[in-house]
Design a protein around this nucleic acid. Sequence first.
DNA 1: CTGAACGGCGGAGTACGCTCCAAGGTCAAG
DNA 2: CTTGACCTTGGAGCGTACTCCGCCGTTCAG
Lengths: 129, 129
Amino acid sequence: MRIGELALRTGVSKDTLRFYERIGLLEGDRLPNGYRDFPPETVPWLRYVRTAQTLGFTLAEIARHGAELKDAPDSAQALSALFEDKIQIVDARMAELAALRAELTSRVGTGCPLREASREPRGGGAHRR
Amino acid sequence: MRIGELALRTGVSKDTLRFYERIGLLEGDRLPNGYRDFPPETVPWLRYVRTAQTLGFTLAEIARHGAELKDAPDSAQALSALFEDKIQIVDARMAELAALRAELTSRVGTGCPLREASREPRGGGAHRR
DNA sequence: CTGAACGGCGGAGTACGCTCCAAGGTCAAG
DNA sequence: CTTGACCTTGGAGCGTACTCCGCCGTTCAG
């Protein structure tokens, strides 16, 4: 698959795809004429990249994890360990979110603006976390 | 509270605090000598900023939400609406995380590397989502 | 009064993640 | 053979979020 089709199928711009290749997030074979040629697996891989990105992973981290996956091609244990690491990170982030959500929920209906300089003499602070 | 103490109490560097003030994320009164003077509420506010940031909100968004909070000082409804908006965003992000977690979990123990160019003839693809 | 610790300011620099541009090569259709 | 869609490269530029720097003023202890 050439770069234009990949861009269309993933919604990732051609420039960005070239950028991803430069930083090692993507690897392209080349056609005899020099054009990039991406395998079909690139499409789900990019979906994964986008998801991981919105979850706060940097492109460098994502690339590194991808590389680790390639380096341990048939060791199911290594893969599982990697996934479990990621799951732990995800769980931690979910806990953070839950905490923020709870904090927000607890404020719905109350009048505490989190901020507000010197209007009240420091009364009921509900700032756990 | 002067900038140094605030930096110590929050773990946010003085430079960053000055930067936050420049972009309107923080507002400092000034002492007669020109030094910044932050109210104690700044400490929880910065905690909140850090949390919101790790959840993917930009500083501009956080500043804007903070400003909205100040603009509706005693309208509990406005506050609640704002919080509920945030909660929705948080819920959406949690759902994304849950999806990624499920995807990762489903791969623990399997040998599907997400990537991997042309090693198998495209057999069992478990790529929903 | 001097020195150290603190603060202020403006501006440059950095890392990340793109995004755009110019100049040019490739290739199929007309 | 030309046109147009597609591709290549290198490099510049941009927004976000800092981070560092130099040079200066302020405050306080000794």
